[in-house]
Write a protein that binds this DNA or RNA. Structure first.
Lengths: 242, 242
DNA sequence: CGAAACGTTGAATGGTTTCAACAAGAGTGG
DNA sequence: CCACTCTTGTTGAAACCATTCAACGTTTCG
């Protein structure tokens, strides 16, 4: 049911979609594709013709520097859109790597642009959702620029937990997490070695435990305190355009 | 002439605007307002009813933390939109401080939403431009997370110079810059003391000079090299929706 | 079984912050 | 008009957080 996919539900949070708009959205869901963990979806620099709606698995978007280090911009989870900006602005400003094996709907640039022209309200909803995603990048910027390694890690995992909880993949107690310490390092702007130390410290202070692909919030209250995490910032208040 | 304002020209880069759409845009330009340097436009946390199109002066958007430090997300220059997301998502996730005295067009939330509903293509253009602005935040994230203080400063000033050149306020040689070292520190995630040292070092290495409100690129080529600055990333290629 | 990926720990190094002090200029009120 | 204060810029020394280098343990998988 297209009406109940996480992606559709997300859009409906911004714009009340008409049956005609739902139909257009449905027609975008043509090609289901699978990708293997670790193999890039889109190469940096190459201008790519397709975007994707993630239906299963985790992806990260990142930029590489000339010296080989990479910065992970964000992680995408089921219901998230990938590569929207690459298509819209016709520049691929970053790359996508599946963290796990994934399933995604491929949306051709031409189909997307056509849908945007035909049903501008749908376009609005999609761009709106994108704007929301980008609010998260702002939070990451603050996180990396202003918090020390411990608070940074805490904030990152709390945010991830909150996002996952929204799509039923986690709770206040914790969540399954396929990320390696290298992923964390690349996302938080730390070295992998330091990530390890920080995780140990958080564990020893009984704040959180990250082991065997599972994150447990041992003391959520103190963790929120440490990270100055804003529990409200992922919420939102229903459609803006009726 | 509304057709030639920097804001309109920017939108026309994404969507070819019809006379009717231009008319709607024109009607949004009702209230011209002035603000004084240093006094916040929008308080963090308060849900504000207006957005602004900046016509003169510089503004910065920032978030403050509980410990008092602040992170500047971005600077806005003439032609930029302020507070779009606050209005659209009805959350004020950051604050705006005029760096200089400014002039701006006030756009009421209700007028903006009405315009969005009436002329969705115009809405697209605006959201599109917002998406572009947010690509810049990604660049800032990489900048803060992965570059050392020297490269960070170089990248920041090169980007700012490029943006200013696009609206005729600077050149490859340099630009007028009203920012203090504290602004730079808050934007780059450094201490003000270290900003001072880094600027000295760049000056002594004859890469750039920042003195008396003026930035001069003494050796642009080596600077671009040092910062791994991508000269192309602010360009773009003409309207996407005809 | 061996290799590769991931995790863990110690010691040395280094970039950045913090603390402290002082200089220069702009604006203000007596 | 001058003292006064506030803001901004400047520099040194000590302390600290995080990185780098290096080594080893553990798990997974062909």
């Amino acid at each position: 049911m297209i009406e109940n996919s996480p992606f559709t539900r997300k859009l409906a949070g911004y714009v009340t979609l008409s049956p005609a708009e739902l139909e257009v959205l449905k027609r975008l869901h043509k090609r289901r594709r699978s990708f293997t963990a670790g193999r890039d979806l889109v190469q940096q620099g190459q201008s790519e013709q397709a975007a994707y709606i993630l239906s299963e698995g985790w992806v990260c978007s990142y930029k590489v520097q000339r010296d080989g280090t990479r910065q992970i911009i964000d992680f995408q989870i089921p219901g998230d859109f990938l590569g929207l900006r690459s298509v819209l602005l016709r520049t691929s400003d970053h790359s996508f790597e599946p963290v796990t094996d994934i399933q995604a709907i491929e949306v051709l640039a031409s189909d997307l642009l056509e849908a945007f022209a035909q049903t501008p309200r749908l376009a609005n909803a999609i761009l709106w959702a994108a704007s929301r995603d980008e609010a998260m990048v702002v939070e990451h910027l603050v996180n990396v620029a202003r918090r020390d390694a411990g608070a940074r890690m805490a904030h990152f995992l709390l945010e991830l937990g909150a996002r996952l909880a929204l799509v039923g993949m986690g709770s206040k107690a914790g969540f399954e997490c396929p990320l390696t310490q290298y992923h964390l390092a690349d996302a938080l702007g730390l070295s992998a070695v330091h990530v390890n130390r920080v995780l140990r410290q958080l564990r020893e202070n009984q704040l959180l435990t990250f082991r065997n692909g599972h994150v447990t919030f041992d003391n959520r209250h103190r963790l929120v305190e440490l990270a100055e995490f804003d529990e409200a910032y992922l919420d939102h208040t229903g459609p803006v355009l009726k």
